[in-house]
């Protein structure tokens, strides 16, 4: 069964329709890349999954269970969105790390705040916080940052910051990890280290949705590729289908612009 089902999502800003009747589903452990030119709606689609934008129409289901329905008030309250968006982790183009916290604190902050909301937190405070810290350290170690726990974001390179951001997203144990152009803000020599940890996550069967301009990475790592243009999904298939035998003329044009 698919882990994610998105049906008939649309979104307009003022009078510009940015997403038009978007439907797709995603299997567990699959890596899906979304490609397309700027303004095609890729990022907006990702932001709709996190409810950073509220879709105007449509339904989103996780494991068959509805987490969003534009017609049902129940899913539109702040509290509902807050708990439902935790199905998705989000890695931003510009990292958005919290500057006043160390790498480790960035990873543990949300976990700690969530733990504090539990009624029996006070009784187990020390153990709970210790467990969260250990988890955070393990995640940063996995990201190759074992010697960077106590560094602040401004002391880290862009690639290191983005890896902290990935660890921070993973700490919430999301069902699906979303990346919004994760290497676009990085110097070319730093993109490799971020793509490497993303590849490792793919190898460990992490379900991921990646909005990217890194065509060779999308081709090598993805199980699925969506090509978006003008708010529509024009292609939805394996990398081989989309990159080598695109159905639409527009896709071929787009891909050709990368080869020239």
């Amino acid at each position: 069964m698919s882990i994610l089902e998105v049906s008939h999502i649309s979104k307009s800003f003022d009078r510009t329709e940015v997403l038009k009747d978007i439907c797709f589903s995603l299997n567990k452990s699959d890596v899906m890349s979304i490609i397309g030119s700027s303004g095609s709606g890729k990022t907006t689609l990702l932001r709709c999954l996190n409810f950073l934008e509220e879709p105007d129409t449509g339904v989103i289901k996780i494991n068959g269970e509805k987490i969003y329905d534009a017609k049902d008030q129940e899913y539109l309250s702040e509290a509902a969105k807050r708990s439902n968006r935790l199905h998705f982790g989000m890695v931003f183009q510009s990292f958005n790390l919290f500057p006043q916290y160390t790498a480790l604190e960035n990873v543990t902050l949300a976990k700690e705040l969530h733990a504090k909301r539990e009624p029996d937190f006070k009784a187990h405070k020390k153990d709970v916080l210790e467990a969260i810290r250990e988890e955070g350290k393990a995640l940063l170690t996995q990201m190759g940052l074992a010697d960077r726990f106590d560094n602040y974001p401004h002391q880290l390179s862009g690639g290191q910051c983005q890896r902290v951001a990935i660890a921070r997203a993973l700490a919430m144990k999301p069902d699906i990890l979303c990346f919004d152009e994760p290497t676009s803000a990085l110097d070319p020599e730093l993109t490799g280290e971020v793509l490497k940890v993303m590849k490792e996550l793919a190898d460990q069967k992490t379900t991921m949705i990646i909005v990217t301009h890194e065509m060779s990475f999308a081709r090598d790592v993805s199980d699925r590729v969506l090509f978006m243009d003008d708010g529509y999904i024009l292609e939805d298939g394996t990398p081989d289908e989309v990159f080598n035998n695109p159905k639409e003329e527009r896709t071929a044009q787009f891909l050709a612009s990368f080869n020239s």
Binding site: L52, R85, L86, F92, N96, F98
Partner: peptide, 17 residues
């Protein structure tokens, strides 16, 4: 930056947190 709000939101934090 707006990104600070968004990073907090996607981690499930409340507005006051």
């Amino acid at each position: 930056p707006k990104g600070q709000d968004e990073a907090g939101l996607v981690l499930g934090l409340t507005k006051s947190e």
